[in-house]
């Protein structure tokens, strides 16, 4: 008799999920080593596109774009997670209050509006209030549309946490802040992690809104990459994508090691 955690078919579906997620990445990685200029014809193994990424004429542009994308995604995801956590606490733990339904709709609004509409409207709006488009406008626009992606997982998590934990802590004379920091926050962690990660990848991937509110000379990775589409995708884009994957794996390894270290010293 297998344990209650076992369900027949769940493991194959998980494997299927991972295969589908990673299969296209194998194409990306393979073609980053393609010797020809095409992504559809194989021209032998070569590192020329990696050389091109670092020393080619567009090296500066892509380097800067990658840096902008990563910093914007980190800041937008983090601030959106903080804002979304506060909102989730209010929505889930705050009981009934006037304007709750409206708040729920408002928080999810960025999700419901087609991106091109937000893009055009934001540009008109930013111009009207005299904001110069650039790094700052991208950041606030990203922050706004990241909020629902962080909010929904966090709120879903919070709904499963009964008030009794906090009450117990308060009964033991923990201050309100202590009860929040020591009890509620750790319980909330999987929701926070999920919300932050979703916000991060949404920001990292955004093209339409960014392209409208970025201003002259500002590039993020998606806008720089979409640039290459007019002449067909070249293998240097595959090389850049592979490098981004490498950076992400570095992040994961670091997170894993830090996590393990943290667990050794309770």
């Amino acid at each position: 008799m297998k344990g209650v955690r076992y369900y027949p078919g769940f493991l194959p579906l998980t494997v299927l999920c991972l295969v589908i997620l990673y299969a296209p990445l194998i194409v990306v990685m393979a073609y980053s080593f393609n010797g020809s200029t095409s992504i559809t014809k194989w021209g032998g193994f070569s590192l020329r596109w990696y050389v091109d990424v670092f020393t080619g004429p567009d090296a500066g542009r892509f380097g800067q774009a990658a840096w902008n994308s990563l910093t914007i995604a980190l800041m937008a995801a983090t601030s959106a997670t903080v804002i979304a956590t506060a909102a989730a606490l209010a929505m889930v733990k705050g009981g009934r209050f006037r304007g709750k339904g409206a708040s729920f709709a408002l928080i999810n609004l960025p999700l419901m509006v087609p991106e091109i509409v937000t893009a055009v409207a934001s540009l008109i709006f930013f111009t009207a209030i005299g904001l110069t488009t650039g790094y700052g406008t991208i950041l606030v626009a990203h922050m706004a549309f990241c909020i629902p992606f962080a909010f929904l997982p966090i709120a879903a998590r919070l709904e499963g946490i009964e008030g009794s934990y906090e009450q117990a802590a308060r009964d033991l004379y923990a201050t309100r802040a202590q009860a929040f920091r020591l009890i509620l926050l750790p319980l909330l962690a999987p929701g926070l992690a999920s919300g932050w990660l979703l916000a991060f990848i949404i920001s990292l991937d955004d093209f339409i809104i960014t392209n409208f509110v970025k201003g002259a000379g500002m590039e993020t990775l998606p806008t720089a990459i979409f640039g290459s589409v007019k002449q067909g995708i070249k293998p240097n884009i595959m090389a850049i994508s592979t490098l981004m994957l490498a950076v992400s794996v570095l992040f994961v390894t670091a997170a894993y090691l830090i996590n393990r270290k943290g667990q050794k010293t309770p």
Binding site: A86, A90, S103, T118, I147, G163
Partner: peptide
């Protein structure tokens, strides 16, 4: 141990979300 109700905090906690989304998503919409 004292109060654990989040109710009085509900509105203050929503202010940042209202502000950011209100200005950068609701107004454009």
């Amino acid at each position: 141990g004292g109060d654990t109700s989040w109710r009085p905090l509900a509105r203050p906690l929503l202010i940042p979300a209202w502000l950011v989304i209100g200005i950068f998503a609701l107004l454009p919409v």
